[in-house]
Nucleic acid binder design. Structure first.
Length: 440
RNA sequence: CGGAGAGUAGCUCAGCCUGGUAGAGCACCACGUUCGGGACGUGGGGGCCGGAGGUUCGAAUCCUCUCUCUCCGACCA
């Protein structure tokens, strides 16, 4: 993409409404545009990142054996009345009426609907376990939206729902998602810690929140320091039938958000030198809720013994749009965002320091053409901005690598390759620079 | 939903107290000089001053109502 043809409305000044760093940087980098309180339009740069995150989530869910569907944003109110949540959910749920005066809700979550879909088709235990997920926009009419996309009213969420014949197998499904979450956040360059959590309005009795440690986190968390650098399971982990050991290794160590924090237990279970108290951002949550929905909704299957039993369910959410903010909170510096490579909006930036200079233009076009052909997503800054402004923009939008091409370097036969995260600069020949990134 | 604050140009803000036909910096456009870490000059475009009432000869400015947004708290992926 040529920057001169791209739509990248970067702001030099910080919009006054933004308080936290991720919100400020997302506005400055031209990633989002606020349209109403807690409601954002995604501009090209932000949308690219959102899609990258979504793709990683999807890929990991598929690996873990979940099956993607897509449920609508609007749901009939009857479904919610059937489970009693129409009243239980409160004003946070957006309710609308269509022209026939039928009540609809803009889905804040999908347990009710997915259970309805399940019960319509699945009648035998032989179809289990089953895990259906979708990635869809949700709406929760928060009293006080804030922090940009970190707490919007409209947000993109991946929600998966597992169906099992009994508690024991449901536990396996739960563990599978637990491990999938460890991997999926790690793949985005995030360190997340699973923590015991309250179950909230979703209900149930087994739940963990996945928390990114960040100084600007919204909640206080307490944990055993060994959890921080625990190895992430490899991609072949799903071949194992029983993931309990991996889960147990973590749940044996104390980790809790302040809602469920027990100071006495914390001190009893964690040696003084291992106690960590930090701020965190919740990016995912897993629940096991048993028959909470299957009983009232009569989502039953016939078991091997011929008896009809309600399925045991779990639900598993990832805040996809929130992750964009969370990643920035965890990875930025004074100059701007530092994208982890897997979620970066572009693989690398190519900076032409002197457009109009024949040799510089030619070198840039050459690099651009060859890297693009090699499958790299390159942002080519071919604008007439002054070099300082170009560097500031590139640092702000946080593309992992920059190839800087100018007459001075070319005279010496080199271009500069900069790594955003470390600030490291190398002088390479043009060929060396291309080869550095050109192997697709 | 309680408490606090803000709505004036795309962004950051001044003007309001003490009414008199709307400003600055940045951004944008043109020309020129510049050009390796956010250049400079000259000229230019852009605002029914959130909305509705009211007071007044006259309202961005005073009064009333209303909408929106932000912050702190309680609540949440």
């Amino acid at each position: 993409m040529r920057l001169s043809r791209f739509f990248l409305p970067v702001l030099r000044e910080t919009p006054s409404e933004a308080q936290i760093v991720s919100h400020r940087l997302m506005l400055r980098a031209g990633m989002i545009r606020q349209e109403a309180a807690g409601i954002y339009a995604w501009l090209p740069l932000g949308f690219k990142v959102l899609k990258k995150i979504e793709a990683i989530v999807r890929d990991e869910m598929d690996r873990a054996g979940a099956i993607e569907i897509l449920m609508p944003t609007l749901q009939p109110a009857e479904l919610w009345k059937e489970t009693g949540r129409y009243d239980a959910y409160g004003p946070e749920m957006l309710r609308v009426e269509d022209r026939h005066e039928r009540e609809l809700v803009y889905g804040p979550t999908n347990e009710d609907m997915v259970t309805e879909i399940f019960r319509a088709y699945v009648k035998s235990y032989k179809a289990l376990p089953l895990n259906l997920y979708h990635i869809q926009w949700k709406f929760r009419d928060e009293v006080r939206p804030r922090f940009g996309v970190m707490r919007g009213r409209e947000f993109l969420m991946k929600d998966a729902y597992s169906f099992d014949i009994d508690q024991e197998t449901a536990r396996k499904s739960y563990n599978r998602m637990y491990v999938a979450y460890l991997r999926l956040f790690s793949r985005m360059g995030l360190k997340t810690i699973p923590m015991r959590a309250e179950t909230g309005p979703i209900g149930g009795d087994l739940s963990h929140e996945f928390i990114v440690l960040a100084q600007t986190g919204e909640s206080q968390v307490y944990l055993h320091s060994d959890l921080v650098d625990m190895a992430i399971p490899g991609e072949d982990v799903y071949e194992q039938d029983d993931l309990e050991p991996i889960v147990r290794e973590r749940t044996n160590l104390y980790a809790a958000t302040e809602d469920v924090h027990d100071a006495a237990r914390f001190e009893a279970e964690v040696p003084a030198g291992k106690r960590v108290s930090a701020r965190g951002i919740e990016v995912g949550q897993v629940f096991y809720f048993g028959t909470k929905y299957s009983k009232p909704m009569k989502a039953t299957v016939t078991g091997p013994d011929g008896k009809e039993v309600p399925i045991h369910g779990g639900s598993y959410g990832v805040g996809v749009s929130r992750l964009v903010g969370a990643i920035i909170e965890a990875s930025h510096d004074d100059a701007g965002i530092i994208w982890p490579e897997p979620v970066a909006p572009f693989d690398l930036a190519l900076v032409n320091l002197k457009p109009g200079d024949a040799a510089t233009d030619k070198a840039c076009e050459d690099i651009y053409a060859r890297l693009t052909k090699a499958g790299k997503d390159v942002l080519y800054d071919d604008t007439n901005e002054r070099p300082g402004a170009k560097f500031a923009t590139m640092d702000l939008i946080g593309i992992p690598y920059q190839i800087v091409v100018g007459p001075r370097g070319l005279a010496a036969g080199t271009v500069e390759v900069k790594t955003r995260a470390t600030g490291a600069k190398e002088e390479l020949t043009l060929e060396a620079a291309i080869n550095r990134f050109g192997k697709a």
